[in-house]
C-alpha cells in the first residue's frame, strides 16, 4: 500500500499509449466528416442549395415577369421563341414561373416543419422528461391527431378555415406537430433513463438545466433527421393543398397550383403540363435523400 500515498499513485495513471493521439472528435464533427465523404448526400444537398438560391434570387434569375400573360403565346412547347420551357395556359413564361414557384413551395415545405419542430419537439421533450400524467395528457391529445391520415387532417383544417397561404401553413404545422412530438418524446424517454441523467440529478441539477445540458444534445439528432424527412412530405402536402385550391392563391406562382391549372391543358401540351410536377419531385426527392444521408451520418435509428 505504500505507493498509494503519493498524490497520483504510480501505476494508476490510466492514460497509457492512448495519450499519444491528441485529436478529439465530437459527435457533430464525426457527422460532418461522414457527410463530407458521402457523395450522394452531397449531390442532393447541392440540388437543395440550388433550389434555395433560385428561390432567393428569383427576381434576378427569372428571365421574364412570372405574371406577364400573353394571349398569343399560350401553351407553347419547350424552346418556343425565347420561352426556354414553354408557356402556360395564359401565355406566362414557364421558366420564370417555375423559378418563382420555388419560393412558395420551399416556404410551405420548410416553415411548417420548423414550427412543428419547435412546438412538437418542446411538447415531446417535456412529456418525455416529466413523464407521468403530463406525458399522458400530451401524448393522448397527439394520438387524436394521429387518428387522421396526414393529407386528410390538412384538408380538414384548411377546408374548414378556407384557402390561403397562412391557413395552409397553420394546417400543415398542426399535421406535423404530433409526429415530431412523438419522436422527441420517445428519444427523451430513452435518454432520461440513462445513468448520466441520473448522475446530473444526483449533482443537484434542476429540470431545465438537465434538459438543456444533457437531454437536448442527445435528442437533437433523431428529431432533426426525422424533421428533414418531413420537409419532403410537407412539400408534397403543400403542393397538394394548392392543387385543391386550399393553398397559395393565384396568380402567385406555385408548383402545386400550376399543376392544377395546367391540368386542363394536358391534351394540348402534355410535356409542359408535367413540368411543375418534375420540380416538386426533384425537390422532395432531394430532401428525402439528404434525410437518409443525415440519418446514416448521425447514426440514428427511427
Amino acid at each position: 500500500m505504500s505507493n498509494a500515498t503519493t498524490s497520483v499513485p504510480s501505476g494508476l495513471d490510466a492514460g497509457g499509449l492512448d495519450q499519444l493521439s491528441p485529436d478529439v472528435r465530437s459527435y457533430w464533427q464525426m457527422v460532418g466528416f461522414r457527410l463530407r465523404h458521402d457523395p450522394v448526400t452531397l449531390f442532393f444537398g447541392a440540388v437543395i442549395l440550388f433550389v434555395i438560391l433560385a428561390a432567393i434570387f428569383a427576381p434576378l434569375i427569372a428571365p421574364k415577369d412570372p405574371t406577364l400573360t400573353s394571349m398569343i403565346d399560350r401553351l407553347k412547347p419547350i424552346g418556343y421563341k425565347d420561352y426556354l420551357l414553354g408557356t402556360d395556359e395564359l401565355g406566362r413564361d414557364m421558366t420564370s414561373r417555375l423559378i418563382w414557384g420555388a419560393r412558395s413551395s420551399l416556404l410551405m415545405g420548410l416553415m411548417p416543419v420548423v414550427f412543428a419542430l419547435l412546438i412538437g419537439g418542446a411538447l415531446g421533450v417535456i412529456a418525455g422528461y416529466v413523464g407521468g400524467k403530463t406525458n399522458m395528457v400530451i401524448m393522448r391529445i397527439m394520438d387524436v391527431f394521429y387518428a387522421f391520415p396526414s393529407i386528410l387532417l390538412a384538408v380538414a383544417i384548411s377546408g374548414a378555415m378556407g384557402g390561403g397561404m397562412l391557413n395552409g401553413l397553420i394546417s400543415l404545422t398542426i399535421v406535423f406537430i404530433p409526429p415530431m412530438c412523438r419522436i422527441a418524446e420517445t428519444a427523451t424517454t430513452q435518454v432520461r433513463g440513462l445513468d448520466f441523467v441520473e448522475a446530473a440529478r444526483a449533482t443537484g441539477g434542476g429540470t431545465g438545466s438537465i434538459i438543456v445540458t444533457h437531454i437536448l444534445g442527445n435528442v437533437l439528432a433523431p428529431v432533426f433527421v426525422y424533421a428533414s424527412g418531413m420537409v419532403s412530405v410537407s412539400i408534397l402536402l403543400a403542393s397538394g393543398l394548392s392543387f385543391l385550391g386550399l393553398g397559395v392563391a393565384p396568380p402567385t406562382p406555385d408548383w402545386g397550383l400550376m399543376l392544377s391549372t395546367l391540368r386542363q391543358a394536358i391534351y394540348m401540351n402534355p410535356i409542359v403540363c408535367a413540368l411543375p410536377g418534375v420540380a416538386i419531385l426533384i425537390t422532395s426527392l432531394s430532401f428525402n435523400m439528404v434525410s437518409d444521408g443525415l440519418r446514416q451520418a448521425m447514426d440514428v435509428k427511427l
Partner: peptide, 12 residues
C-alpha cells in the same frame, strides 16, 4: 414512391 407527388404521377 415516397418522393413523388402521386397526383402528378396520375396526370403523367
Amino acid at each position: 414512391g415516397v418522393s413523388i407527388p402521386n397526383y402528378w404521377f396520375g396526370i403523367v
